[in-house]
């Protein structure tokens, strides 16, 4: 009689344990499902894409304040192919640097964006570079690349803008 009672008690404890295990599993399942819910980033994705691609295209077409007959693209081409343009007795490379610094100061730097804006010549030498919070410890989110034809000189210069996240 005593043996039967002990067996019954054991069976009840087993049943209780099964319930506890099921509840725990259910809880973990719910928590993991909740943490895996993908948050929406449509707006930030769009803004990053717009910034990385449209920014450099708009920049290339911008005319230079001190010599409006040239735009940023003309200065990149001239700087990469031997500096013939002079703007107020300033060479194209220096004028390019001044212009891009002024525009980035009033936009990306002012907005405290993490970025790296670079211009490369046809031999992959850096003509211009400026970065803010976009190095070690940050993640690169998106890079926009715009090739600039140097015709009749072979090859292309490259204008890149990388948007980072800290």
């Amino acid at each position: 009689m005593a043996q039967i009672k002990t067996r019954n008690a054991q069976a009840e404890i087993m049943g209780l344990m099964v319930i506890v295990v099921l509840v725990t599993l259910g809880f973990f399942f719910a928590v993991s499902l909740r943490s895996n819910i993908k948050t929406s980033d449509i707006q930030s994705d769009y803004t990053d894409k717009q910034l990385s691609t449209t920014f450099i295209i708009a920049l290339l077409q911008t005319n230079i304040k001190d010599c409006p007959e040239y735009n940023v693209e003309d200065l990149i081409i001239d700087c990469a192919t031997g500096e013939n343009i002079e703007c107020n007795w300033v060479g194209s490379c220096d004028m390019l640097e001044t212009t891009l610094n002024e525009i980035t100061d009033k936009s990306l730097i002012k907005w405290n964006s993490a970025f790296n804006l670079s211009v490369w010549d046809n031999e992959d030498n850096i003509i211009y570079t400026r970065a803010q919070n976009c190095g070690r410890g940050s993640t690169r989110i998106r890079t926009g690349i715009q090739p600039v034809q140097l015709y009749p000189v072979p090859g292309n210069a490259k204008f890149t803008l990388t948007i980072c996240k800290q």
């Binding site: 803004t47 910034l51 449209t54 005319n63 936009s107």
Partner: peptide, 22 residues
């Protein structure tokens, strides 16, 4: 507030020059 920034070219038809804006 949802904020979107779109870089744009600002065209001056009188001087026929492009500026940069957002």
């Amino acid at each position: 507030i949802d904020q979107i920034q779109v870089p744009v070219t600002i065209y001056d038809p009188i001087s026929e020059t492009n500026g940069f804006g957002v």
